[in-house]
Nucleic acid binder design. Structure first.
Length: 259
DNA sequence: ATGTCTCAAACATTGAGA
């Protein structure tokens, strides 16, 4: 089973680039972030025509997540539990019914800049809610994964220029500590389970020639439960997608599971 | 400090968010 995650930075702007990647990626499940669309405006036929079930959790203008799946989906839920007043569309869950059921969570974690400030407070509170949700799912002792745009640079080796991110919400010590707390629950960073060392990124800013200078950061992650990590076969970043026509500022990352 | 892109407002340009 191949499961991919892709922050597309607007479904309307990626109406050509997304299907082009989708047709060659041959993924069974795709988690999308920043669809920047309400549910009614999402071009679901584009994906249904390719054999995908489509589940969206959108909002007007910003954020928004979705799941595309060639396998049946069950028990779809929208919104990260823990704050009924939170109206931002950043979380969607579903169970993928393959030979073995896998719970998949698609997430778009808050950016948090400028830090300090209310946006950073919201980010840290959201990460605390994520921790609680991970604990709940771990108690089931079944395969699950949480994947998407974490807006977290876990370590200095995950940035081309770590010094430039020292004061940024994506790399502040409290951000990294909150991410480590998730790992310390027993979750596996799928990319780091397969590949070590510097120079592996999933995001390059549109500004200042970041792509041409390979000035990137690794902020899109797959975290796997122990039962899911047992099934991990591969994890790769589709870096070349960033160099194409009208790209997103993120590229897809994917795992294959032996199931 | 910022050379870009996307979206919504309202129909050109600006502000917000990233």
């Amino acid at each position: 089973m191949k499961i991919a995650s892709f922050n597309i930075n607007g479904i309307k702007a990626r109406i050509n680039a997304l299907p082009e990647w989708l047709d060659e990626a041959d993924a069974d499940v795709v988690l999308l972030q920043e669809i920047k669309s309400v549910d009614e405006a999402f071009p679901r036929e584009l994906f249904e025509d390719r054999g995908f079930a489509v589940e969206t959790h959108g909002q007007k203008g910003f954020n928004g997540v979705a799941i595309l799946s060639r396998l049946p989906l069950e028990d779809v839920t929208r919104g990260l539990p823990g704050d009924d007043a939170d109206e931002q569309a950043r979380w969607i869950e579903a169970t993928v019914m393959g030979d073995r059921a896998v719970r998949v969570c698609g997430l778009y974690l808050p950016n948090g800049n400028p830090a300090p400030g209310p946006k950073y407070d919201y980010k840290l509170a959201w990460m605390e809610r994520l921790h609680v949700r991970a604990q709940e799912l771990l108690m089931l002792e079944e395969p699950f994964l949480m994947a998407g745009d974490y807006n977290v640079i876990p370590q200095d080796e995950d940035a081309r220029k770590p010094e430039a991110w020292r004061e940024d919400a994506l790399a502040l010590p409290a951000t990294r500590a909150a991410f480590r707390r998730l790992l310390n629950l027993g979750l596996t960073d799928a990319f780091r389970a397969r590949t070590q060392g510097a120079g592996h990124y999933t995001f390059w800013d549109y500004q200042a020639g970041a792509w041409n200078r390979d000035n990137g950061i690794r902020i899109d992650h797959f975290l796997l439960s122990p039962q899911c990590a047992d099934l991990l076969s591969d994890c790769q970043i589709d870096k070349a997608v960033r160099g194409r026509e009208k790209p997103s500022d993120h590229v897809p990352i994917w795992v294959t599971l032996d199931v």
